[in-house]
């Protein structure tokens, strides 16, 4: 290290012949030019939201396969372990009338989802819901989506149920995406998408409330989305893991990592999917056994106190 000596005077012999304020003027100039330049560029270009399209974009075959064909070993290895993003599972509901939907003449337990495309919590929840339900049936017509660019956890990459259909011999699934993720200047909110039916509205009004959702701490949380009613046997409101987990990742990046049980994002999604699967197994009387007797679902049943 160099030897240093201190002098008591600020005025010292010149070195290099540069004026003392040169560095300051350069620093101030560079910073101001960059900041002003950014503001000017921003003001002269359109906002991303204004350019956003409402066009439906179907999920490609590769992503769909990665999403709906998660290896059993991944479910079993992850179980309910998600150290980076803690999971909250569906809460049990008892003493309520059965919620069913008749499909091909057969009354199946109905899983009702209510959400919106702008909603970042719905964005996170759809990943695990789609994966869980894909163990009991088949989705088609899922679309790419992202949460609102001007909301918290902006532009969280996800899917939309707006045109999706689901077939299963065990359960029925119904979804309502109430708003797009496109801001509507007229209402200062988002463009509406799908209206709830009277039956869906009744479910939300009754069960998406502090009376039935144990995690709600005030009536102001009533009506929170995403809201999932699993045949009036289990309820879920809000995301089961924080949308921050998915920040900065594309659907392709998230989906391609679903075969890696050590990936923290995969762990959050799969742990939540296992807990939803465990709840669905209650509705299906533990069918199919290949799912409901798997190690991952057993771990989830234990975590949720399901016997």
């Amino acid at each position: 290290m160099a030897n240093a000596t201190a002098s008591k005077k600020a005025q010292t012999p010149a070195k290099g012949g540069r004026p003392a304020g040169l560095f300051t003027w350069i620093a101030v100039g560079v910073v101001l030019v960059i900041v002003v330049g950014l503001v000017v560029i921003k003001m002269t270009s359109g906002s991303p939201a204004a350019k956003a399209s409402t066009t439906f974009e179907a999920v490609d075959a590769t992503t769909m396969s990665q999403l709906t064909s998660v290896p059993t070993s991944v479910f079993n290895t992850v179980g309910v372990t998600s150290p980076v993003a803690p999971i909250s599972g569906p809460s049990p509901l008892s003493g309520q009338p059965a919620l069913t939907k008749t499909v091909n003449g057969k009354a199946l337990p109905l899983i009702q989802y209510v959400g919106a495309e702008y909603c970042p919590y719905c964005a996170a929840e759809r990943w695990s819901t789609i994966i869980a339900l894909s163990r009991f049936g088949t989705f088609s017509n899922l679309g790419f989506a992202q949460s609102g660019a001007s909301d918290v956890y902006p532009s969280t990459k996800t899917f939309t149920f707006r045109q999706a259909t689901y077939t299963s011999p065990y359960v029925a699934f119904s979804a309502a995406e109430t708003f797009t993720s496109i801001p509507d200047p007229a209402t200062n909110f988002y463009f509406p998408l799908q209206k709830l039916t009277a039956a869906q509205t009744a479910l939300v009004k009754k069960y998406d409330t502090m009376q039935y959702i144990p995690t709600f701490t005030s009536t102001q949380e009533n009506g929170s989305i995403p809201f999932i009613d699993m045949a009036n046997k289990f309820l879920s409101a809000g995301a089961s893991f924080t949308p921050a987990t998915l920040a900065g990742l594309t659907q392709g990046q998230i989906a391609s990592a679903l075969s890696d049980p050590t990936n923290p994002v995969t762990q959050a999604i799969i742990a939540s999917a296992n807990e939803q699967s465990a709840a669905i197994c209650v509705l299906t009387n533990n069918k199919p056994a290949s799912v409901c007797s798997s190690a991952g679902v057993k771990a989830a049943k234990k975590a949720l106190n399901i016997k």
Binding site: T12, A14, G16, A20
Partner: peptide, 25 residues
Amino acid sequence: TFALLIVLTRVTPTQLGWVASAPLE
């Protein structure tokens, strides 16, 4: 951070003998 940079660019070059000294006090 910007204010710190202004102060430090004003005094550090002189303090370390990188530039001609100026009456700072």
